[in-house]
Structure formats: structure tokens, C-alpha cells
């Protein structure tokens, strides 16, 4: 039996939107609608989709930034080594539990407090949780800077974020995230604001850290090519739902859902001789699956741990 770092069941995040100034009825926007997945230890899941499909909302709900409106989320607890539901935790326990979940943000220019030095930024989690004495903390900071490739540490510690380049800032973000030694990290497009040449070194760093520190990522991106490089499995999100989830290569080589196909066929290929076909949306394969399994079950397994959503998406793609 595989151990998971996170198990998500039927996660929902609904927003109420008032219909306008004079209107009394309220519309409900289903930003995240009944999604389920789990991430085994040491593996990473890519959450791929267009902007507005609900992937960032999912991330924020999982990081407890915005409360979810429904569903069941269980995290792995580093101390008890069990899966734990944290819905009913008291404040102090919740604060303690937050060590297990961390997030890396998209914009390296906005995710570090511009008025703090790098040292203070990386120290903050240790200060919040009061871990170790002062000397321990400083040693930990130097150590983690070395881990993310910012050496010599003394050259970076007293600097402010705006004195560093985008790539260096993102390394600082990663250092800050990993200093708590979490097992599960949510990454919200951490490389999309970086230049191509720097992107790969950050991605490689994250992959190496995942191996060395046994971290699992939920990697959110709109770029399937990046997700392919980073993740063992990919979940494609559309309209607040996961429409297809499978092993990375299985998903890319054998996509079933029309939206997945559409997404894959939209990605430019860095090869002028490759003739990319424009995908004409058709629902035949999906219809066949619905006909076989019915629509009672929201996700059906078609073998190889390849799941397809049976939700009706006709006319939406």
C-alpha cells in the first residue's frame, strides 16, 4: 500500500456572486467543483489548465488561505506519520500543522517582502514556530541557502529582494519554503515569470530537492511541457473539474478527453519541421466512455490508472 502525502476527496469551492446592484438573487460560481486526487510520497502531480479553470483556487484552498466550501482533505502529519484531517483543529494545533504545507508563488517579485533582508525572509518561518535557538536558526538559514545554490550565503543574507535577479529570488522563495522541511509543497507556476534560460535551472533545482528531501509537489501550470518535465502524474482541469488524470507519458501519448486533446495540440513545438495538426474537437471517444460506464460515476478508470471525467462538456470546449 502506497503512502500518500495528501488525499483530496470531492473538494469544492463555491463563491456567491450577487447578480448586480439591483438584483437580489445570488449566483453561485463553482470555482472548484468536486475534484479528487491523491499524491503518493515522493511523487508530484501537475495540475494543468487554462487561467480561470480553478487551479489556483484549488491551491489556495489546500494551503488554507481561503476556506473550502466542501469536501474532505487529509494531509500527512510529519510527527504522527498518519493522515490527518485538519478541519477541526484548534488555532494552536493548526498553526503547528501548517509546517507540513508550504507554497511557492508565481511572481518572484511580489512573493518576498521588499522591506526585509533575505535573512529575515528565510528566518521568518523558524521565528513564527520558534524552532531552535538563535544560533541554530542562523545555521539553518546558511545551510538552506547552500542547498538552493546561493553561495556564499554571507553574500546574500543582508541583501534586499530587489537587489537579486528573478532566478535568485525564486531560489530564496524555495529556501524559505523548504526550511520547515515540509513533505508537501504547492507550486503555483513558479517558473512562468522567469526567462527560459533560468527556468530550467529552477526546475532542475526543484526536482533535485524533491529527490533529496522527499518532497512532493502539487505543480500548477498552464504549460503541459513544463508539467511533463516536473511531474509523475498530470491532472487536466477544465471549468472547475478535473477532466482527465493519468501518468504523464500515458496522458500525453494517449489523451482521451477532448479538452486534453485540444490542450496538447495547442502547444507549439520547438521544431520547425514538426507539422502540428490543428485538433478538431470531437466528443466520440468521450461519448463512447459515457455510454459504457454511464454518468453516475464522475471519474472512470480506463486502465493504467488513467481516469476520465464523464461530466458533460459538450459545447463548452
Amino acid at each position: 500500500m502506497k503512502k500518500n502525502v495528501i488525499e483530496v476527496k470531492n473538494l469544492e469551492k463555491y463563491y456567491e456572486v450577487s447578480g448586480g446592484f439591483f438584483s437580489r438573487n445570488k449566483d453561485i460560481v463553482k470555482a472548484v467543483d468536486d475534484i479528487s486526487f491523491e499524491i503518493p510520497f515522493g511523487e508530484s502531480l501537475g495540475l494543468v489548465g487554462q487561467s480561470g479553470c480553478g487551479k489556483t483556487t484549488t491551491a489556495r484552498a489546500l494551503c488554507l488561505l481561503d476556506p473550502k466550501t466542501g469536501g474532505d482533505v487529509k494531509f500527512y502529519n510529519n510527527e504522527t506519520e498518519n493522515m490527518q484531517n485538519i478541519d477541526n483543529l484548534e488555532d494552536e494545533e493548526l498553526k503547528k500543522f501548517r509546517r507540513n504545507i508550504q507554497m511557492i508563488f508565481q511572481d518572484p517579485y511580489e512573493s518576498l517582502n521588499p522591506r526585509w533582508t533575505i535573512k529575515d525572509i528565510i528566518l521568518e518561518p523558524l521565528n513564527i514556530h520558534n524552532i531552535g535557538d538563535l544560533q541554530d536558526r542562523e545555521e539553518a538559514v546558511v545551510e538552506i541557502l547552500k542547498t538552493v545554490g546561493l553561495t556564499p550565503a554571507s553574500n546574500y543574507l543582508p541583501r534586499y529582494p530587489h537587489e537579486l535577479s528573478g532566478g535568485q529570488r525564486q531560489r530564496v522563495s524555495i529556501a524559505r519554503t523548504l526550511i520547515m522541511k515540509p513533505k508537501f509543497v504547492v507550486c503555483d507556476e513558479p517558473t512562468s515569470m522567469l526567462d527560459v534560460s533560468i527556468r530550467i535551472s529552477i526546475m532542475d533545482l526543484m526536482l533535485n530537492l524533491a529527490k533529496d528531501l522527499e518532497v512532493s509537489y502539487l505543480y500548477i501550470t498552464h504549460d503541459l511541457a513544463v508539467a511533463r518535465y516536473m511531474c509523475n502524474r498530470i491532472a487536466v482541469m477544465f471549468n472547475g473539474k478535473i477532466v482527465e488524470i493519468a501518468e504523464t507519458e500515458e496522458l500525453l501519448n494517449n489523451p482521451i478527453h477532448p479538452y486534453t486533446k485540444r490542450l496538447i495540440s495547442s502547444i507549439p513545438v520547438p521544431d520547425p519541421s514538426y507539422d502540428r495538426k490543428v485538433y478538431d474537437v470531437n466528443y466520440d471517444e468521450l461519448d463512447a466512455i459515457i455510454a459504457k460506464h454511464g454518468t453516475d460515476n464522475p471519474m472512470v478508470d480506463i486502465g493504467n490508472e488513467h481516469y476520465i471525467s464523464t461530466h458533460d462538456v459538450k459545447g463548452l470546449i
Binding site: 507554497m103 521588499p114 521568518e124 518561518p125 513564527i128 522563495s173
Partner: peptide, 25 residues
């Protein structure tokens, strides 16, 4: 700003975030 979110995820209290993140900015 994301750095405030980041402090929240880490478990920083409201007062802490207010005084050490928002006020200086």
C-alpha cells in the same frame, strides 16, 4: 501580495503580519 499569503501559510498570526509585513510597506 503573495508575501503576505506566504506568511499566512507559514502560520503567522494576524498581528504579526500586520506589524511586520503590512506596516513597513
Amino acid at each position: 501580495k503573495p508575501f503576505v499569503d506566504s506568511a499566512r501559510i507559514t502560520g503567522g498570526s494576524r498581528w504579526r503580519i500586520m506589524f511586520s509585513h503590512v506596516l513597513p510597506n
